[in-house]
Amino acid sequence: MTSPKLANLNAKLANEFDVAAQALVWLRESIPQLVGAIAVLVIGVILVRLLSKAADRALIRSGRVEPTVAKFLSNIIKYALWVVLIITVLTQFGVRTTSIIAALGGLALAVGLALQGTLSNVAAGVMILIQRPFRVGEAISAGTVTGTVQGIGLFTTEILQHDGLYVMVPNNELWNKPIVNFTRMPTRRFELLIGIGYSD
């Protein structure tokens, strides 16, 4: 007859052998998926770097996009490619990515609602840099602000007023108001009213 301690030891050993056998079976079945995921990851990293650099160069060489907008768009393309790569690698492991995509969509919606004002300034900044209603060094008037443009960013535009005051205007406020550019046209009409007395 075996003692209770020996029986417990045999049971533990048998349990450990079962766990090891299950681990070996899982590893044997998962090796193709693991190799495929590593291959997809390596190739994907190379492609992401090449495509992001190519997009950055294409945007800069086009000459139609401001450097600030080109960098912003290239970063968006790069992050989007990274998200696609991560989802593809998870798919190779058999992970259901539908819930992950839904969670990312919900997170993006929440962030968009929380940063609604900031994102509107970014969108207005992108439109200003693309449409170019004014450039750095030009004198403009928009709303209650009149002065010379010192810098254009994604969030704000820097304007030096004629009285020497430095103003940072949110791009959304500029984009939603009529913009008068005093420098764009080389020739313009100027009206000067001179009063003359009847006795003269």
Rank of each mutant, 00 (worst) to 15 (best):
T2V: 15
T2C: 12
T2A: 14
S3I: 14
P4Y: 10
K5N: 12
K5A: 12
A7S: 14
N8P: 03
A11C: 12
K12M: 10
A14N: 03
E16F: 15
F17L: 15
A20H: 13
A21L: 12
Q22V: 08
A23K: 03
L24F: 15
V25Y: 08
S30L: 08
Q33A: 04
L34S: 12
I38D: 07
A39W: 10
A39L: 13
V40S: 04
V42E: 02
V45R: 09
V45E: 00
V48K: 04
L50G: 12
K53T: 11
K53L: 12
R57H: 12
R57Q: 13
L59D: 00
I60E: 12
S62R: 08
P67M: 00
T68W: 01
V69S: 07
V69T: 09
A70W: 02
L73V: 14
L73W: 04
L73D: 04
S74F: 04
S74Y: 00
I76P: 05
K78A: 05
A80Y: 08
V83Y: 02
V83C: 00
V84L: 04
I86T: 06
I87T: 10
V89C: 07
V89F: 08
V89A: 04
L90V: 04
Q92Y: 14
V95E: 00
R96C: 11
R96L: 13
R96T: 14
T98M: 12
T98P: 11
I100R: 03
A103S: 05
G105P: 09
G105E: 05
A108Y: 07
A110H: 00
G112K: 08
G112T: 10
G112M: 07
G117Q: 14
N121M: 01
V122G: 10
V126L: 08
M127Q: 05
I128Y: 00
F134V: 00
V136K: 03
E138N: 07
E138A: 07
E138R: 10
I140N: 07
S141L: 05
V145C: 01
G147W: 03
T148G: 03
V149T: 02
G151R: 06
L154Q: 02
F155K: 05
T157H: 03
L160E: 01
L160W: 13
Q161R: 05
L165Q: 13
L165M: 14
V169I: 01
N171F: 06
E173T: 04
L174T: 07
W175Q: 01
F182A: 11
T183M: 03
P186Q: 01
R189T: 14
F190V: 14
E191T: 13
L193H: 11
I196W: 15
I196H: 14
